[in-house]
Structure formats: structure tokens, C-alpha cells
Nucleic acid binder design. Structure first.
Length: 834
RNA sequence: GCCGGAGUGGCGGAAUUGGUAGACGCAAGAGACUUAAAAUCUCUCGUCGGCAACGGCGUACCGGUUCGAGUCCGGUCUCCGGCACCA
């Protein structure tokens, strides 16, 4: 073997070795227990960044570790390859999105290969390929059949210059992220998926996500946002119309001073005579603007006290939530309070803080004369509420709800913040929505036998005039699947979150073998699902993960899969930051993985990413730290090289034979340290993948090995055993150097390579210390330490402590022992006084 | 505003169940090797006092529980993340 560690020389060799022998290929006909390890697949933006390196290094350690532990590991990779950047590149540089995307995939695939990631590439999935997106279309049609996909008109963020819908995250300070034009709210027909049909199930099942970070589960719960409310009907005076409002505070019903309608509310059009004014309000609907209101000129009747209250249209009332109308209680809701102040509307206090007691007269006085400074939003005691005055909020809610229900004027309802998922995008580079519009039959789904609806190649990218599909007659013109007449194809494409909502299912089959049939449970899915460990950035805590949970349930209800939850365990890794900030081109603080790999190699890049912080925390980049990681690997190399011939000799004659009683004291210590390290590394990986401390333990062991001087054959056997163990333990983290040294030391017998070896086991007896340092405290302060044999009984430990010179000295000064506390095998605390 | 999370040396981070605070690494300093530098190796490295043995202080801040608190409880401050007119 070479004396010098040269990763550039060894790493590519092992990468081709693994690839040629398909070491990481897995199948369903394997008797070993399955383990599905998955990292979030990348968007092929051009080249990988440090976030990818970290994400995939973490996943790769898990996959390699589980393989060594004897699992049949599925570890796939693919490409989330539809999306806006490809289209923007087409507009800017005239490259076709397809060409741009596939070239990026080629390049990035090489980069991933150079990191030594242990994927089964035979299952690679590329979402922009027709083999993949035809199933997007198939799932969509199935959802349409089940009423889970539907078309409705809704308000969306619209960029008038780009002529497309923008997702919320693409609107920055009310401006288009691409052209800086002002974004407007536009009413548009869009396709939606009825995720709300699963709201309750998705929420309830959150409690079963035991393998997920609590933070993410909580974010999902908040996103679904369940609340208990009461619907109440307010009659519009002098008409037959009824306004149904929703409230979570029935106890404040007597304080409802006006009613607000959302601008798109159907009654708003009907009640407002001044259409120009209504349009003005509508223009400010859905914006984080100042509050705007418009009096309709009509009143309605509060059912609990028959008061006439004015009806307003208000820009801040959401049509999508509840009924699109609210009752306004300015005294107890800050938004209503602000609105009332702005339009000089009356305020009536109906809830008093608990314990207000004799202050109440004063408080009441405020509501009559002195102006209230702000709304009181907490619960309290009802006042000015007719027969309910004096009740607490809880009782008030129950009794008033009861009254409304009894009168038939409303009912208790459950509401969710979760909205149906709008999937239409006015973009080219996405899955065509498989629908045609027929003048006679309306929107009709494409026949299953006609799938996939192929994205046409012959289109122009101008960046204006909306989707390029609008100018493609060959695509646009279709015949109606129902009546055969002239029809026009849907030109909207699907949100790319649709693609990523089931890619983990696709991996179980592989792109070429994708096939689903409603009512037929797929055997590959039965074998591999659910994902045992999912690893990815926390930025997907809600959207992608929630969509996937929804999608899995839809696929389940189609009879294709048994599970409801796609991801059993989730690890959300932190960001890679530099100088305290996220790496970004504009800040000029990016680290290019290519540079790292060229300079230090893949093993060092992986090792540093894993060592510098535990995976769930942000990782502060450090050039010097990378050098430290490289130095460690250089020392490992030197360690093997130093005694390579001796070790080869030992492995050639059947491997080390350990007889602890025959080894020197140093030998027994190294043997013990080795067993302790196997134990530590194993438990650190098992304990939430704390690779940083596992690597620290390996560094400790290598430090001991470096200063170890074997005296005879028995000692050399121990050394050989330690080296063998270190290489096995390093194999998941830095697989190339582990492979190379494994081979160089002649340890590669039986199996092809170290990646196929079994994870080492430790011997509890040999890992145990025979002497321990007993800590002696007096009144909780450290006062002495003494070496004692391990396993001494508590009272013997106590005696040893009291007999130690430091303690004798201290206690001779007239202190009395009041109590002695012994912590098994570790510590004695002497409580003394005077 | 609401809901979470986190504050430990010069830095990244350890301390797993309330039991030696600072493992491991980086940086820094001293020394060895070298004509010299790099690389490598050895030692020091929370802070204050002391020649030293040793002692005081120390895990954002204030208080509490406990024989004993980085860890548990109450309050304050700061930073980070999520949601934000959800009625």
C-alpha cells in the first residue's frame, strides 16, 4: 500500500467497484428484513450544493449502517425535475427545458456518484419523464372519479406581466419574484384536490407520528388548524336573505355590533348598489393591507337580542374560511375593534375579566363613555348579555350555542384552516392536467387508454403571453372522449408538489415498472412501504410532508397500498451556514462541493458534514474544520500503514485470536477501549443518529492506537482487532478509505468488500472497566477523587471515601457528618455541618 | 401578536436517567524535527488569585426545589424557526 493517503487515487476506484458489482442493488426476494432509507430527492438545478452533501451523507450513513446490521436496504435516488427554473432558463437562454433538465441530471448524477453514495440506481425516478407523469395523470383521473379533484373559481396571486399564477412563496412584498410587478388578486378557475376531506384523519394521525420530530408534528397540527365553532344565521332585514356567520366565541354574541362579508361573498354583490366601490374593496382583498370596509346600506337581525346591526363588506374577511361572513364584536376582537374605530361604529363590552369584581361599574362606564383602548380577547364573565349575564365564558358558550341550535338558527361545527390544494399552474414545464373541454359535455377526463397526455416539444418560450401551450395547436385541439366532438385541451399543468407526493412509492417499483391498478394491492409496495427513515430539510415540514400524507391515503383508498402513513421516521436536518448566515450566491459565502472533493476527497467532505454538528442542528461551515477531518483520515491511514505487514500476517493465518489474559496491560486497555468504542458508536447511531459523538469516539480510539506499543504476538492480535473494528465502524461514514485499508490489511475474506461485512459486536465483559474513579463530594462540592475497584458495594464506597486523606483532613476541622449519599459506583457525597 | 426551539470556553460542540461541566475537533501559545518554512510529533489551553500545593468563581439573567442543578420549577432578557387578519 501507499505510504501517503491520496483520496483522489482510491475513491474513484471503489466507486466503480461498487457500481460494477451492483453492491447496493436490492430486491424483494430477499429473506432479510427490509429497511427503506430515503432522502428528499433534489431539483436538478445544475449542480449540488452543501445542503445536498449533508443531506445525502446523513442518509448514506444510515443506509450503509443498516446494511451492515443485516437489513435488506432500499436506498434510491431520483429527480424532482419539473419546475420553473427550467422554463426560466428556456426564456433566458433559449435552451429547451427538457435539454436543460436532462443535462443537469447527468452532471449532478456524476457528482452524487463522486460522493460515494450507496444508491440502487436501477430504481431511479425522473418526474419529468412521460413514464412517470402518466401516473400523475392517472392518479388525477382517479381522484376526479372519486370527487377528490374538482374545479372551482378562486382568488389567486396573479402576475399581470408574466401572466401566470404565483404560489404564495413566489410573492415577495406583494411583488412578483421574477419581474417585480405588483401582484394582483385574480379570480380564476383552478383544479383543486380535496385534501380537506382528510383533514380530520390527518390531524388525528399526527399523534401516531412517534418517529417524527415533535416540532414538525406540531407545525402540521397548526397548519390543519382545527377549531370548534358555532354557525349562526342572521336574517337580512326586509329580505328573505340570510347571512350565515361562524364564530368560536358564542359567548360574545350579544356584543355583535355589525356583520362583515368577504368581498367575494355572493350576498356582497347583491346587497351593494355601488359596484365601483365594491370592486375597490375587492382589489384589496387578501392583502396584508390596512382594513377597508364598505357599508352595504342593509341591516340584519341579531337572533339573540333582535337588534338591527349594519352589514359591511370588509377586505380582511376571508371567503375561504368558514362561511365567508363574520359577526364583529369590537370589544373582544382586536381586528373588529380597529375596524369599529376606523368607521366610528359602537362598541359594547359583554365580557369582563375574571376577578374584576367591584371594578365592573367602572368598566361598564368605559363602554358607555370612556373609550376602550383595545379589545379584551380573553375569556371572563358575561355582562350586558340578557339572561346569560353573570355566566362564565365556558357556560356562556354552551348555553348560547344551545339556544341557537334549539331555535334552528345554527349549529356547532368544526372548522379547519387547511384549504383544498390548488394544483393548476399556468406553466409549460409540468404534468399536463389530463382534461379536455368540450362545448357540449364541459370538462371531461382523458381516457385512461390515452395516457399519457404528452407535453409537446415544439413550443416557443417568450416569457410573455402566458403558457406556451396556448400557442400549440397540435396540443390544444382534441376530440371529446365522451361525444367525440371538437374539444380544447386543458393548458394548465400540475403543481410540482404533485410529483413529489408519491415518488417514494415509485421507487418501490422503479420507473420502468410503474404500474397501478385500482383495487389491486401492489406487492412491491407491500414489501417496501412505509419508508423507515426519511431525511430532509425542515423547510418541507408542512407542504411536501402533508401532501405526501394525503396522497398516501388516497392511494390507500384506491386499494393499492395498505399503509396510511408514508414515513415512519423523519429526520429534519439543519441548514449548512457560513458566518452565521445561510449560504447564498448573493452573500458570496457558498462552498462548492466540487472544490472540496477535488481538494480533500469525498470521505473528508462526508466526515466533516457529519462531525461538525448533530444532524438536526444547523452546521456552521469551517474551512479549518475540514482540514481537521482530513488530518484524522490521514492518521487512520498512517495507523494502518505502520503495521500493515504484521496485520496482513495475522489475517492471513485466520485473523486475530484474542486472549486477554495473555496480553500486556496496555493490550488489555486497548482491547477494552475498542469494545467500548464499538458500543459507543453503535449506541450513538441508534440514539437519533448522533454521528458527531460517534466520530469523536473513533478519534479517541485512534489516538490510543497511535500511542500503542505492542510487546508480543498477543498484543499485535489486539492491535489487529482494533484496526479491524475501527475500519468497520468507519465504513458507513468514510466508506472509501475503509474499503481500501480493509483490503490492504488483508481483511477482505469471504465477502467482496467491507460494505458487505457485518457490523461489529462488542463484548460487555471486555468493555467493563476494572477500576473506577470515585468522586468524593462534601456538601455537593468536589473535594477528592480516589481509584477503587469496579463493582464495590455502596457501604464499601462510603468507607473508602471517608478514609481518603482529603476528607479526613477536612473532617478533622470539627465538622460532623450528618448524612452520606452514595451513587452506585460513581460518587459519594458527604453532608456535614458546623 | 400567537405557537415552538435554543442560549455552555476564543470557535464548532460533549455531558444519554438530577451525580466529576467543557469529551472530540478547530483556533491559539510553547517546544521538538528542519538551514528555513510547510507538514508531522509532544505539551499547555474556562476564568480569577497563588511560585506552588490549592482555593474562589463559572453553563444568558434573577429566584426556587434538592445532599447535589447545564439538566427540574417560576420569572426576566436575547436569538432563531413556524404561523399570521383563520373570526
Amino acid at each position: 500500500m501507499d505510504e501517503r493517503y491520496d483520496p483522489q487515487k482510491i475513491e474513484p476506484l471503489w466507486q466503480s467497484f461498487w457500481a460494477e458489482r451492483e453492491i447496493f442493488r436490492c430486491g424483494e426476494d430477499d429473506p432479510r428484513q427490509k429497511y427503506y432509507c430515503l432522502e428528499m430527492f433534489p431539483y436538478p438545478s445544475g449542480r449540488i450544493h452543501m445542503g445536498h452533501v449533508r443531506n445525502y451523507a446523513i442518509g448514506d450513513v444510515i443506509a450503509r449502517y443498516k446494511r451492515m446490521k443485516g437489513f435488506n436496504v432500499l436506498h434510491p435516488m431520483g429527480w424532482d425535475s419539473f419546475g420553473m427554473p427550467a422554463e426560466n432558463a428556456a426564456i433566458k437562454h433559449g435552451v429547451h427545458p427538457s435539454k436543460w433538465t436532462y443535462e443537469n441530471i447527468d452532471y449532478m448524477k456524476k457528482q452524487l456518484g463522486r460522493l460515494g453514495l450507496s444508491y440502487d440506481w436501477s430504481r431511479e425516478v425522473t418526474t419529468c419523464s412521460p413514464e412517470y407523469y402518466r401516473w400523475n395523470q392517472w392518479f388525477f383521473i382517479k381522484m376526479l372519479e372519486k370527487g377528490l379533484a374538482y374545479r372551482k373559481s378562486s382568488y389567486v396571486n396573479w402576475c399581470p406581466s408574466c401572466e401566470t399564477v404565483l404560489a404564495n412563496e413566489q410573492v415577495i412584498d406583494s411583488q412578483c419574484w421574477r419581474c417585480d410587478s405588483g401582484v394582483v388578486q385574480k379570480e380564476l378557475f383552478q383544479w383543486f384536490l380535496k385534501i380537506t376531506a382528510y383533514a380530520e384523519e390527518l390531524l388525528k394521525a399526527c399523534d401516531d407520528l412517534a418517529g417524527w420530530p415533535e416540532k414538525v408534528v406540531l407545525m402540521q397540527k397548526n397548519w390543519i388548524g382545527r377549531s370548534q365553532g358555532l354557525e349562526v344565521d342572521f336574517r337580512v332585514a326586509g329580505t328573505e336573505d340570510v347571512i350565515r356567520i361562524i364564530t368560536t366565541r358564542p359567548d360574545t354574541l350579544f356584543g355583535a355590533m355589525f356583520i362583515c362579508l368577504s368581498p367575494p361573498h355572493p350576498l356582497a354583490k347583491k346587497l351593494v348598489a355601488d359596484k365601483v366601490a365594491l370592486e375597490k374593496i375587492t382589489a384589496h382583498y387578501g392583502k396584508a393591507d390596512e382594513k377597508m370596509g364598505l357599508f352595504t346600506g342593509h341591516y340584519c337581525i341579531n337572533p339573540v337580542n333582535d337588534e338591527r346591526v349594519p352589514i359591511y363588506v370588509a377586505n380582511f374577511v376571508l371567503m375561504e374560511y368558514g362561511t365567508g361572513a363574520i359577526m364583529s364584536v369590537p370589544a373582544h376582537d382586536q381586528r373588529d375593534f380597529d375596524f369599529a374605530k376606523q368607521y366610528d361604529l359602537p362598541v359594547r363590552v359583554v365580557i369582563e375579566p375574571l376577578g374584576a369584581g367591584h371594578d365592573s361599574a367602572q368598566k361598564n362606564g368605559r363602554s358607555q363613555g370612556l373609550p376602550l383602548q383595545e379589545a379584551y380577547e380573553d375569556e371572563g364573565t358575561l355582562v350586558n348579555s340578557g339572561e346569560f349575564t353573570g355566566l362564565g365564558s365556558e357556560d356562556g358558550k354552551a348555553r348560547i350555542s344551545e339556544l341557537i341550535e334549539k331555535k334552528g338558527l345554527g349549529k356547532k361545527v368544526i372548522n379547519y384552516k387547511l384549504r383544498d390544494w390548488g394544483i393548476s399552474r399556468q406553466r409549460y414545464w409540468g404534468t399536463p392536467i389530463p382534461v379536455v373541454y368540450c362545448d357540449l359535455c364541459g370538462p371531461v377526463a382523458v381516457r385512461e387508454s390515452d395516457l399519457p397526455v404528452i407535453l409537446p416539444e415544439d413550443v416557443k418560450f417568450t416569457g410573455t403571453g402566458g403558457s406556451p401551450l396556448l400557442d400549440s395547436p397540435s396540443f390544444l385541439n382534441a376530440s371529446c372522449p365522451s361525444c367525440g366532438g371538437q374539444a380544447r385541451r386543458e393548458t394548465d399543468t400540475m403543481d410540482t408538489f404533485f410529483d413529489s407526493s408519491w415518488y417514494y412509492i415509485a421507487y418501490c417499483m422503479g420507473l420502468k415498472d410503474l404500474k397501478f391498478e385500482a383495487g389491486h394491492a401492489a406487492p412491491e409496495l407491500r414489501h417496501w412501504m412505509p419508508v423507515d427513515q426519511y431525511v430532509g430539510g425542515v423547510e418541507h415540514a408542512v407542504l411536501h410532508l402533508l401532501y405526501s400524507r394525503f396522497f398516501t391515503r388516497v392511494v390507500r383508498d384506491l386499494g393499492i397500498i395498505e399503509q396510511s402513513e408514508p414515513f415512519k421516521n423523519l429526520l429534519t436536518q439543519g441548514m449548512v451556514i457560513r458566518d452565521g448566515a445561510k449560504m447564498s450566491k448573493s452573500k458570496g459565502n457558498v462552498v462548492d462541493p466540487n472544490y472540496l472533493i477535488e481538494r480533500y476527497g469525498a470521505d473528508t467532505s462526508r466526515l466533516f458534514s457529519l462531525f461538525a454538528a448533530p444532524p438536526e442542528k444547523d452546521l456552521e461551515w469551517s474551512d479549518k474544520g475540514v482540514e481537521g477531518a482530513f488530518r484524522f483520515l490521514t492518521r487512520i491511514w498512517a495507523l494502518a500503514h505502520k503495521r500493515v505487514d504484521a496485520v496482513r500476517g495475522i489475517s492471513a493465518s485466520g485473523g486475530p485470536v484474542i486472549r486477554p489474559e495473555e496480553t500486556s496491560r496496555a493490550g488489555r486497555e486497548l482491547l477494552r477501549k475498542t469494545h467500548q468504542t464499538i458500543k459507543k458508536v453503535t449506541s450513538d447511531i441508534e440514539r437519533e443518529f448522533h454521528f458527531n459523538t460517534a466520530i469523536a469516539a473513533l478519534m479517541e480510539l485512534s489516538n490510543e492506537m497511535a500511542s500503542y506499543e505492542p510487546e508480543d504476538k498477543a498484543d499485535l492480535d489486539v492491535y489487529c482487532f482494533s484496526l479491524k473494528s475501527v475500519l468497520l465502524l468507519l465504513a458507513p461514514f468514510t466508506p472509501h478509505i475503509a474499503e481500501e485499508l480493509w483490503g490492504a490489511a488483508g481483511l477482505n475474506k469471504g465477502r467482496l468488500c467491507i460494505s458487505e461485512e457485518a457490523w461489529p459486536l462488542w463484548d460487555e465483559d471486555l468493555s467493563r472497566e476494572d477500576e473506577v474513579e470515585l468522586v468524593i463530594q462534601v456538601n455537593g462540592k468536589l473535594r477528592g477523587k480516589v481509584l477503587v475497584p469496579a463493582g464495590l458495594a455502596d457501604d464499601l464506597l462510603r468507607d473508602r471515601a471517608l478514609a481518603s486523606p482529603e476528607i479526613k483532613k477536612m473532617l478533622s476541622g470539627g465538622m460532623n457528618i450528618k448524612k452520606v449519599i452514595v451513587v452506585k459506583g460513581r460518587l459519594v457525597n458527604i453532608v456535614a455541618g458546623q
